[in-house]
Amino acid sequence: MVEQVTEELRRSILSGALEPGQEYSLRELAGMLEVSFIPVREALRSLESEGLVHNRPGRSAMVTPLDLDDLQGIYRLRRAIEPEIARRSCAVISDEALDAAEADAAAFGDEAHGMADIYEDHHGFHLSLLAPAASAWDIRVLTTLWRAGERYIRIGFGRLDPDPAEHQRRGQAHLDLVAAFRTRDPERVAAAIEEHLARNERIALGALAGPAQGAGSTASQ
Results as ranks from 00 to 15, higher is better:
Glu3Pro: 05
Val5Gln: 01
Leu9Trp: 04
Arg10Pro: 00
Gly16Arg: 07
Ala17His: 15
Tyr24Arg: 03
Arg27Asn: 08
Leu29Tyr: 04
Gly31Glu: 15
Met32Pro: 06
Leu33Ala: 11
Leu33Tyr: 03
Leu33Thr: 07
Ser36Gly: 07
Ser46Tyr: 09
Leu47Phe: 13
Glu48Cys: 02
His54Asp: 03
Arg56Pro: 04
Arg59His: 03
Thr64Gln: 02
Leu66Gly: 00
Asp67Arg: 00
Ile74Lys: 07
Tyr75Pro: 06
Tyr75Ser: 07
Arg76Met: 00
Arg78Ala: 10
Arg79Ile: 09
Ala80Lys: 08
Ile85Phe: 11
Arg88Gln: 14
Ala91Tyr: 08
Val92Ala: 13
Ala97Pro: 09
Ala101Ile: 02
Asp104Ala: 13
Phe108Trp: 01
Glu111Val: 13
His113Glu: 12
His113Trp: 13
Glu120Gln: 14
Asp121Cys: 06
His122Phe: 13
Ala136Ser: 06
Ile139Phe: 08
Leu145Ala: 11
Arg147Tyr: 01
Arg147Cys: 09
Gly149Pro: 12
Glu150Trp: 01
Glu150Val: 02
Arg151Trp: 07
Tyr152Val: 00
Ile155Pro: 03
Gly156Asn: 13
Gly156Leu: 02
Gly158Asp: 13
Pro162Gly: 06
Ala165Trp: 08
Arg169His: 11
Arg169Met: 10
Gln172Gly: 05
Ala173Phe: 11
Ala173Asn: 05
Val178Asn: 10
Phe181Pro: 14
Arg182Glu: 08
Thr183Asn: 06
Thr183Trp: 07
Pro186Glu: 06
Pro186Ile: 09
Ala190Cys: 03
Ala192Gly: 15
Ile193Thr: 08
Ile193Lys: 03
His196Trp: 06
Arg199Asp: 03
Arg199His: 04
Arg199Trp: 05
Glu201Phe: 05
Leu205Gly: 07
Leu208Trp: 01
Pro211Met: 02
Ala212Met: 05
Gly216Gln: 01
Ser217Ile: 15
Thr218Pro: 04
Thr218Arg: 13
Ala219Gly: 15
